[in-house]
Design a protein around this nucleic acid. Structure first.
Lengths: 355, 355
DNA sequence: TTGAAAGCGCTAACAA
DNA sequence: TTGTTAGCGCTTTCAA
């Protein structure tokens, strides 16, 4: 690793001069000709700044800690990490990801991250749950991803659950479905004992879309389920009782129950019934392609934008200083997604700041 | 953040003394009484070493870089990360994970990791592919995870593909199946154009288990497939042509095709036919529970052991210095996995060094 | 048995 | 316009 000292020696200047040049703080302070010589030497020697030394001096590491609770257990959460990593790279930051699934001790992990000098933190959940920011993070820059702050004080980037459901339901309406069911998620918030944010928003979007089309919402067409056997049973009953011809499913695990029930009854997807799912898990979405129509959750984008917001917080620069490129997830695109705009919202102090 | 200086002042000793004590190098050099006072002050002030300063001095960061290509696109790869993180924590290391899926530039990411001073690297793939270690990593400690080194010079931790398949097939034999099919994976190595390592090993294990039970291997019972429509079609043909009553599936995506076909033919899993899958994706395994019998891939363990091996390399200590605890993945355990021992192997210089 | 001092690579205030 | 100097928190000789 080349050091500034070596560049200084080679160029015949002092280390401070090199430092100034390498940090682009030479305008008007260093003779352009010298600056140029320094830059040349640097690139010749392949100089890269030593982040350790730099941060020892400046107390800023350009490290972002990414804390997530369900990455290992929720497939395709990876998209969110990828987005955050991508933005961090672009902005000259390093992303350090820690999972606190299972056995991991959250406090311990956060402490380690702090010891390594993280400048700020991304705190990510899955399925947009109400979340309390851990005590240790209270005095640091923090942005939530796919989560909603219980106290409303911390900015968050969330999917636009309402729009997702509205789009999906409208798609089924336009496809000519007469009896559209919603297969939702029965998971409740540990604290409030109310349905998780995503379920709330999607149910509302489903309802609104029906009403916007002049239909009446009928709760008998709604089945909120958990997993496996009981879920399969509930969906089966929905089939028998209501004979829906369209299904909007909370995620693709739920979509699978519909598939299973349809297959057992000899009904063909895309012919006898239509199914739209949200690709929380995406494996099924890929496997069932192209029978399953999908609304893609903008995981990549959420990660990306959350990281950008966090950097704006860290560097105390207004958000508008940053480009918000038309990022696209580098994940395999599904064949037949609903051609909807990306629904993703930055929420700050309880108000939507940027779409 | 408390520094050694503060401890020194409070205790009335010098920083060097504190350093010695904090690094457990005080035996016979520092009066035990003084050492004790230092330790007390340290814990009172909640002293934590500053890794930046430490590594600036020592040229060792206790950072491990985890490079993986398909984490974002393969659900439950997270288990491997979790395992590596868990081992790293235990051994006082920090894991920095970078994904090089999609748009990411591998060389760039590795360079960043090196700049941050990573002491060594974990290089992970999915489904045990033949892999060439990137040039930049040649002169660093590296361990492969769920991958096989093409050149055989780099240690790797891999699933015991043969045993996995042997177990699964034997399970089906013991369950009384007469015609056991293998639904394999048709992906080939980019370079050699041969099937990926996992496919090879599993096919061999399937074959051996049949022969061990005194049966003959019949290649008409084997369908190696890719995805979606064509896969479904191929499995459908297998059903019609051979009428198998047992299926060993390369992963749960493949298991799903069997499910779909069975459902369409009115066959019940666990009654008319038996299915065993490997939980590469696991979402399906969880969703289909408990109908699908599963051989769990030891992702967590591979990550854990790979990290341990890497640390032994970094610190140039023999592997036996480290405990190899009976680690268990903190992931939700499947309900009905095949009660098999964990199949996971450390391969070094083309020979199995540790099971 | 302990401490003083130098230095890892970098930044920043101050001097020249 | 440039260089000198001090110091971030730590480790490590070397001297006492």
């Amino acid at each position: 690793m080349t050091t500034m000292k070596e560049i200084a020696q080679r160029t015949g200047v002092s280390v401070s001069t090199v430092s100034l040049v390498m940090n682009h703080r030479d305008a008007g302070r260093i003779k352009p000709e010298i600056a140029e010589r320094v830059r040349q030497a640097a690139s010749q020697l392949g100089y890269k700044v030593n982040p350790m030394a730099q941060s020892l001096r400046t107390n800023s590491t350009r490290i972002i800690g990414f804390i997530s609770e369900e990455v290992a257990t929720t497939p395709y959460a990876g998209g969110m990490i990828l987005g955050a990593q991508s933005a961090a790279n672009r902005l000259g930051y390093m992303l350090i990801t820690v999972s606190i699934d299972g056995g991991m001790d959250e406090a311990e992990e956060i402490a380690a991250l702090k010891r390594y000098g993280a400048d700020g933190f991304l705190y990510a959940k899955m399925s947009n749950r109400a979340t309390t920011v851990p005590e240790q993070l209270r005095d640091c820059p923090v942005v939530l991803a796919d989560a909603t702050d219980r106290d409303g004080g911390t900015p968050s980037v969330e999917p636009d659950e309402f729009a997702i459901a509205h789009d999906a339901t409208t798609y089924l309406i336009n496809a000519g479905c007469q009896r559209i069911a919603y297969v939702g998620c029965d998971v409740t918030d540990d604290t409030t004992n109310k349905p998780i944010v995503a379920q709330n928003g999607r149910l509302a979007g489903y309802r609104a879309a029906l009403q916007d089309a002049g239909r009446t919402y009928d709760e008998r067409l709604v089945a909120n389920v958990l997993n496996n056997g009981p879920a399969l049973k509930a969906v089966g009953e929905l089939f028998e009782r209501e004979q829906p011809d369209g299904f909007f499913c909370f995620n693709d695990a739920r979509a699978w129950y519909v598939y299973e029930c349809a297959a057992r009854r000899g009904l063909a997807i895309g012919k006898d019934i239509s199914v739209v799912g949200v690709d929380n898990h995406r494996v099924l979405a890929e496997t069932l392609e192209p029978q399953l129509t999908t609304v893609e959750l903008p995981h990549f984008e959420m990660g990306y934008w959350a990281a950008v917001k966090l950097v704006s917080l860290i560097e105390q620069r207004p958000l508008d200083d940053f480009e918000w490129p038309e990022t696209t997830a580098p994940l395999p695109q599904l064949d037949a997604p609903i051609p909807a705009k990306i629904h993703c919202t930055l929420i700050e102090k309880n108000s939507v700041a940027r779409h």
